[in-house]
Amino acid sequence: MAKRCDKMAPEHNVYTVFTFVSTHQALKAEKVLKEEALKASIIPVPREISSLCGLAIRVDAQQRGQVEQTLRGKGVGIEAVFDFVPRTK
C-alpha cells in the first residue's frame, strides 16, 4: 500500500517519486504512462528512500493524482509514493 509523505505542499518545482515492488512493475509503469502520454522518467531510487526495487518513476507533482490513478487502474504494483522538494542551497 502507498505510503504518503504529504508534509510538503505541492509547489511548482516539486516532484513525485513512485517506487515499485519489482523491476517488472517499474518498467510496466513506464510503459503504461507512455501509452497514456503522461510525462514520466525512470530513475534510480533516491538514496533517502528504501525500496524493494532499484528503479523508480519520477513525475511532476501536479501529475501525481492522475499518474497514481492510471497506474492503479492498470494494476501496476506501486510500493510507495513520495513528494520531493529539490534541495535549495
Binding site: 518498467l27 510503459k31 528503479l55
Partner: peptide
C-alpha cells in the same frame, strides 16, 4: 543486464523482457 542497475542499456534490456512478457 536487465533489472540490474538503472543505466540506459540495462533499462533497454529490461524493456525487452517486459515487452515479451506482455
Amino acid at each position: 543486464n536487465p533489472g540490474r542497475g538503472g543505466h540506459r542499456l540495462s533499462l533497454q534490456a529490461g524493456r525487452i523482457i517486459l515487452e515479451t512478457r506482455e
